[in-house]
């Protein structure tokens, strides 16, 4: 009796799983998405004229015309019609959130290990840890955005605000989607059938996405926070 198998379970031409191939191609596409957002940020960074600035800068009085009070407070007169404006980025605080996201990658890979080796308790534990770390990162981001807002930076304050919030906001959206993704997997793993015979694959897929979001942050943290003006 010949028994042809269902479409998704054929042996494939390259020997790779279709779904994993899809993930990698999709992540390749995401490179262009974040590349374009980052390009926008860097293009405008070169021509910032009015505060708030990402890092400390000296400007003349003309730059402060029409600037919000909150942004003006960060600029102190140093005489000669010049003002020194404090940069808005708080590298130590964001380093903490960077560390949190980095650790979430470690917990994620441990969850993948647990799923692939049929150690389901380990998988659930580390999935939960990854979710919590992801939520912590989002908490840091909410704190950062709120602080910046109070210091006069918003979508309409200047090009730095617009491109910074767009770039980090879309990264944060990716993290949030990742938390939901992991959460739904964790929820599903408590069903009687668990995640089924392909648990290792499902968690690995989620891991690919999660690690990619982490990798994007590695680039963003370096380019946005560590490299000075």
């Amino acid at each position: 009796m010949a028994q042809a198998s269902a479409v998704e379970h054929h042996p494939t031409s390259t020997g790779t799983d279709n779904r994993k191939l899809l993930w990698w191609i999709f992540l390749g596409s995401e490179c262009l998405f974040f590349g374009s957002l980052l390009a926008t940020y860097l293009i405008f960074k070169g021509s910032l004229a009015i505060p708030p600035f990402p890092t400390d800068r000296i400007v003349d009085a003309a730059a402060l015309v029409g600037v919000s009070d909150a942004a003006r407070e960060a600029c102190h007169s140093i005489g000669n019609n010049l003002f020194e404006c404090e940069g808005i980025l708080d590298v130590p605080v964001t380093s903490q959130s960077t560390f949190v996201l980095l650790m979430s990658s470690v917990t994620m890979v441990l969850a993948v290990y647990g799923a692939q080796n049929n150690r389901l308790k380990m998988m659930k534990l580390w999935l939960l840890a990854t979710m919590l770390l992801g939520l912590a990162f989002l908490g840091y981001q909410v704190f950062e955005f709120t602080t910046f807002g109070n210091e006069g930076l918003n979508l309409s304050s200047n090009q730095f605000g617009a491109s910074f919030f767009m770039l980090t906001g879309f990264h944060g959206t990716h993290v949030a989607v990742g938390v939901l993704y992991l959460g739904s997997l964790l929820f599903a793993s408590f069903r009687r059938s668990g995640l089924g015979p392909e648990a290792g694959f499902h968690i690995e897929s989620a891991g690919l996405y999660w690690h990619f979001v982490d990798v994007v942050w590695i680039v963003l943290f370096t380019v946005l926070y560590l490299i000075p003006a």
């Binding site: 021509s47 910032l48 004229a49 009015i50 600035f53 400390d56 800068r57 000296i58 400007v59 003349d60 003309a62 730059a63 010049l82 003006a229």
Partner: peptide, 9 residues
């Protein structure tokens, strides 16, 4: 456009 507001930084 050349930046007008910035002198140094």
């Amino acid at each position: 456009e050349p930046v007008t507001g910035i002198v140094g930084g």
